[in-house]
């Protein structure tokens, strides 16, 4: 019979010891029901304090453990409970709302928030273009991944959550829609490199958009924030979006992501 540690995890051949220790710590913290001090974690796991401290610091960095600023005690992080469950679309909307409003205000354009939903992107939030014109709320609308900025942003940066380009039905909406897998794949590589996506009249003629990813802890992309409006208002003659607009978008996406637990 193998001698087991306090949590039933002896060292097994072929495993990585520091990960075993980290797992044991998470179980210990999860079963404690109260914040634990460093000594209370190191002792039952039979670890020297510097070793335990190093592992805890790493767990804190990746967002699995939280440390109380006043007492220096450790608890499991809320983010850990989210593991294995996707982000609730309404949580995302409520976290994004203020920054989406602020983006609509500063850009003077419509703001969209999309999340992957099978082979399409679904709008979970929409802010009107603030010009008093009659508009309809687009929340719940489903958009093609390959022909919109929010969609292409997800294709490029959240590849696990959406189908791959060759699995998509690359329907043509306008003369500018990318309908060839090769073209689209190449385009997505550029989006991935740049970190944001643009669309110039590929879904509706004359309407363009740019979109940036929303990230949670660990950098995982859960949605895309987009600014949509007339192509001539968003882009210059050469088809490049106005730098100020890109900056406003990226700033809003960064602020929302920070609120979702992404490290800056």
């Amino acid at each position: 019979m193998v001698e087991h540690g306090v949590l039933g995890y002896g060292s097994m051949p072929g495993t990585i010891q520091s990960i075993e220790r980290a797992a044991a710590m998470l179980r210990l913290l999860g079963s404690a029901g109260r914040p634990l001090a460093l000594a209370e974690i190191a002792a039952p796991l039979d670890l020297p304090r510097p070793t335990a401290h190093g592992i805890l610091r790493t767990l804190r960095e990746v967002g699995f453990v939280e440390q109380d600023r006043d007492t220096a005690r450790y608890t499991l992080a809320v983010a850990l409970r989210r593991l294995g469950s996707e982000w609730d679309r309404h949580d995302l909307r409520s976290r994004a709302m203020n920054w989406a409003d602020s983006l609509a205000g500063s850009s003077g354009q419509e703001v969209l928030l999309g999340m992957p939903a099978g082979a399409v992107v679904e709008l979970v939030h929409h802010v009107f273009r603030p010009d008093g014109s009659p508009q309809r709320l687009r929340t719940g609308e489903q958009l093609p991944l390959h022909a919109t900025a929010v969609g292409k942003c997800l294709l490029a940066l959240a590849p696990i959550a959406v189908p791959r380009p060759h699995e998509l039905d690359l329907q043509r909406y306008t003369g500018r829609t990318m309908v060839a897998v090769g073209t689209l794949t190449e385009h997505l590589a550029a989006v991935r490199h740049r970190g944001w996506a643009a669309e110039l009249g590929e879904h509706r003629t004359g309407v363009g958009a740019i979109a940036a990813p929303l990230r949670t802890g660990g950098g995982l992309v859960v949605g895309a924030l987009g600014v949509e409006g007339p192509v001539e208002e968003l882009f210059n003659g050469g088809g490049t979006p106005h730098p100020r607009l890109v900056e406003q978008l990226l700033n809003a996406a960064r602020e929302i992501s920070a609120g979702l637990g992404a490290t800056r």
Binding site: D101, A104, G105, H126, V127, F128, P130, D131, G132, Q135, R136, L137
Partner: peptide, 8 residues
């Protein structure tokens, strides 16, 4: 005052 959303 700018309208950000409307429900009919």
């Amino acid at each position: 005052w700018h309208r950000a959303a409307a429900w009919e």
